[in-house]
Design a protein around this nucleic acid. Structure first.
Length: 560
RNA sequence: UGGGGCGUAGCCAAGUGGUAAGGCAUCGGGUUUUGAUCCCGUGUACCGCAGGUUCGAAUCCUGCCGCCCCAGCCA
């Protein structure tokens, strides 16, 4: 194994812990709460936790942090398992739940009470808030803070037995109401919730809070490095407090790194959920969603996602990464993997006036210009063809080297044609082009090397198959929608556009999820949900890089 | 005006006292029957600012500024 040139700070710590003999092996965990779908931000955490362990022959737990019944559901646990697995990671037999430890957690709570380090408080939630103080003023002790151990033990047992209503009692850690760190002002450990838990049923009516359950779950599982995001930094003293008080045999260490934010995307489960709830998107797996499920359905390869988070890096600096980086990872992966096909998104009919009416012939097209081993296919060619509306301009600017009146272009894998006549409707719109082809320029023949500036794609009208193609764009108009007061005001109205496209016949046998490149347009795949019936439905995964679009854009900007 | 973090090119990011890697983007150019790919080339980064220590500082010290997080019986 070769030594990497540089390690991120977490890998450095792990490396040192292994070198020094502090640990013999590394154990990590990915601990999602099953209250929503995983998104691009989680990809970062998943890859970090699983990779860092795998790199060191360690192991990783997939642990559901299910301590808040009512907000969590089995639907989400299934989705999370599917997503983590699809991303390429395997937890083996290490699939656990915080709720698996409810028994041990309760015992630990009793132990804290016995230690005089926890007490049952009868203050209401509102009162507790008042007693907590503010960021700049210290809190004050609850009047119940000095109940005897015996009384606390009795109260805790009765909480568990269901003698109290929700909110009537709460178990709190006894730390310091005057701490400048709010997390240390006697945080709640257990609250009463008379609700059925998705995993433990009605066995419990008291449920542990995050800090308590998470720290101890880490300890129980022998996690060596508990990696989480920056907002938990102030929780670390509390995390360590639990370990000091209870002295479990395994003492995990919490290390925080910055979250990954993606430009123009929301990474808040709550807001993502709102988009679904309000029907702004079609579901958690809508191809516009930055969820793992959405990106998978959109056609992003798992490897591209892994590559993306690797490029983003692991640091403690807040980051907002440009969309282009993600898109580039997708293009890079698909550019190599995807076979090429011809498809016309916005069809314009052309008639080759000098091509025989009844004739049709098969043109040979390579499936991948960079990978000849992928072979060739045959595409039918005939007198009437569909070309892209964008590939014709009646009054073309200087550098436009596609089709224009009197001009020539090469039809990809076909002939060179010339535009002789533009046919318009009463409204003056171009509806059809009359062209002539040069029989001497058939692709692949010895005389086919005559040069023309442009090459455009096409589909034979008589042989084309129809499809709906969905073109996606960013969901928001602001770079950082996370910080918008109300995301409704910055929704991109054009995030989804559907067009009726014409495809080359071979595309009818494509399997859902398989990505292909429509030459000159981008990468596409058959939608996994809506391909039923007669009409094929394609998703545009990402466009090709488009230098011409950039030139046009600059030209427009220069005019103003 | 409490506590915890962070500040290296447009976006990421190496760098751990010896004189600023790399990726993406940008801008040039070459190849090309995808204006794709590929290949070359391209950045005065006052290393947040100001002082100080040192022969020498992005790296050490001091002060300041800016941004993020924390007052759930959420995670």
């Amino acid at each position: 194994m070769s030594e990497p040139q540089s390690r991120d700070f977490i890998r450095q710590i792990i490396h040192e812990d292994l070198e020094s003999g502090k640990h013999d092996s590394i154990v990590t965990r990915f601990p999602p709460e099953p209250n929503g779908f995983l998104h691009i931000g989680h990809v970062m955490s998943i890859c970090l936790n699983f990779s860092v362990a795998a790199e060191n022959n360690g192991r990783t737990y997939l642990r559901f942090d299910d301590t808040n019944p009512g907000k969590e559901s089995e639907e989400y646990v299934a989705a999370i398992e599917r997503d983590v697995h699809w991303l390429g990671f395997d937890w083996g037999d290490r699939l656990t739940h915080a709720s698996d430890y409810f028994g041990q957690l309760y015992e630990s709570a009793v132990q804290l009470v016995e230690l005089g380090a926890a007490y049952v408080d009868s203050l209401s939630a509102d009162e507790i808030r008042e007693y907590r103080g503010t960021l700049t003023t210290p809190g004050k002790d609850s009047p119940h803070r000095n109940r005897s151990v015996a009384e606390n033990l009795d109260l805790l047992a009765r909480m568990r037995a269901g003698e109290f209503a929700d909110g009537e009692m709460v178990l709190r850690a006894k730390i310091d109401m005057r701490s400048p760190n709010m997390n240390l002002r006697d945080p709640a450990l257990y609250r009463i919730r008379h609700v059925t838990h998705q995993h433990t049923g009605d066995k419990w009516c008291i449920y542990p809070m995050y800090d308590f359950a998470h720290t101890l779950s880490d300890a129980f599982e022998g996690i060596t490095h508990s990696l989480c995001t920056l907002e938990f930094e102030d929780h670390r003293p509390l995390y360590n407090w639990f370990l000091e008080q209870l002295k479990p045999p395994h003492q995990p260490r919490q290390i925080e790194f910055s979250r990954l934010n993606l430009a123009y995307a929301i990474t808040s489960k709550r807001k993502l959920g709102a988009l679904v709830e309000e029907g702004i998107v079609a579901g958690w797996d809508d191809p516009r969603m930055p969820t793992i499920a959405g990106m998978r359905r959109r056609g992003y390869p798992a490897a591209a996602l892994r590559d993306f988070v690797t490029r983003a890096g692991v640091t403690k600096k807040d980051k907002l990464i440009e969309m282009g980086v993600l898109e580039n990872c997708v293009r890079e992966n698909l550019g190599e993997a995807a076979e090429r096909r011809l498809a016309v998104l916005r069809p314009l009919k052309i008639v080759l006036t000098n091509y025989p009416e009844d004739k049709s012939e098969m043109m040979s097209a390579m499936n991948h210009p960079g990978r000849p081993e992928l072979g060739n296919r045959e595409i039918p060619f005939s007198r009437e063809l569909w070309i892209e509306q964008d590939d014709f301009m009646e009054e073309a600017p200087r550098k436009f080297f596609r089709l224009q009146p009197g001009g020539e272009v090469r039809l990809r894998f076909g002939y060179i044609i010339r535009c002789d006549e533009v046919v318009k409707n009463d409204a003056g719109e171009v509806v059809e082009l009359h062209c002539s082809y040069d029989p001497e320029t058939r692709s692949g023949t010895g005389t086919s090397d005559r040069k023309v500036k442009g090459t455009i794609h096409w589909v034979s009208c008589a042989h084309a198959i129809d499809a709906k193609v969905r073109l996606y764009d960013r969901l928001f108009t602001e770079v950082n929608p996370n910080s918008a007061a109300d995301f409704h005001t910055i929704l991109n109205a054009d995030s989804l556009q559907t067009v009726d496209a014409k495809l080359e016949p071979s595309l009818s046998s494509l399997a859902p999820g398989d990505a292909v490149q429509f030459e000159r347009l981008g990468y596409f795949c058959i939608d996994s949900e809506e391909h039923s019936g007669d009409t094929l439905v394609f998703n545009r995964i990402v466009t090709l890089r488009d230098t011409w679009a950039k030139i046009e854009k600059q030209a427009i900007q220069q005019q103003h």
